[in-house]
């Protein structure tokens, strides 16, 4: 949207307001009796968004529901990862929300890139893995073990090999 801030109804008197410096209370410039929350624009440096299909120019089909397109439009740089790279993605293509290449900085072919969450039409969410992730997040130690098992020192291919069911306790390759 490119707006510097936006008024929102709600949140007055909450501890959320106490703990954030990007939201404050302000009277409406059009009505001196109306008090609202004003939230500062969120502008990430980089957004990484997963698409079902993308073309080499950067146009892509992002998930149907959610805020992906808005996040892309708010961010300075946008990396789209995609299940498939196709010749051309056009507005109106089925399967999700269209985003034009004018918003996209780079495209990466990353099949399985949404794991352990789902991509409609490609794969279901991996409930077991999400459960393992949640349980691991209970302490710093167990989360470190999770990272060592799946992430740290692993390439994308190694991660995909481990989670594709070959073994959840696979040893790192090489």
């Amino acid at each position: 949207m490119g707006v510097p801030y936006i008024p929102v109804r709600g949140l007055a008197g909450t501890d959320v307001m106490e703990r954030r410096d990007d939201m404050l209370m302000a009277y409406s410039p059009f009505d001196e009796n109306e008090l609202n929350v004003v939230a500062k624009a969120q502008n990430p440096d980089v957004a990484i968004l997963h698409a079902s299909k993308a073309d080499e120019q950067g146009s892509a089909i992002l998930r149907a529901f959610g805020e992906d397109v808005m996040i892309a439009q708010a961010s300075a740089k946008v990396i789209v990862t995609a299940e498939e790279i196709v010749d051309r993605v056009a507005p109106g293509d089925p399967g999700g929300s269209y985003i034009s290449s004018i918003n996209v900085t780079a495209v990466v072919h990353a099949p399985g890139g949404a794991h352990p969450t789902a991509v409609d039409g490609y794969y279901e969410m991996d409930r077991e893995h999400i459960e393992e992730y949640v349980l691991s997040s209970e302490s710093d130690e167990s989360f470190q073990r999770y990272l060592e098992r799946y992430v740290l020192g692993k390439t994308e291919e190694e991660y995909q090999a481990i989670v594709s069911g070959r073994s959840l306790v696979a040893e790192p390759a090489g």
Binding site: R9, A12, G13, V16, N33
Partner: peptide
């Protein structure tokens, strides 16, 4: 933690 408040300043609709 106050997630929501019932009593708010007069200007809040």
């Amino acid at each position: 933690f106050i997630s929501g408040a019932s009593v708010t300043p007069a200007g809040v609709k």
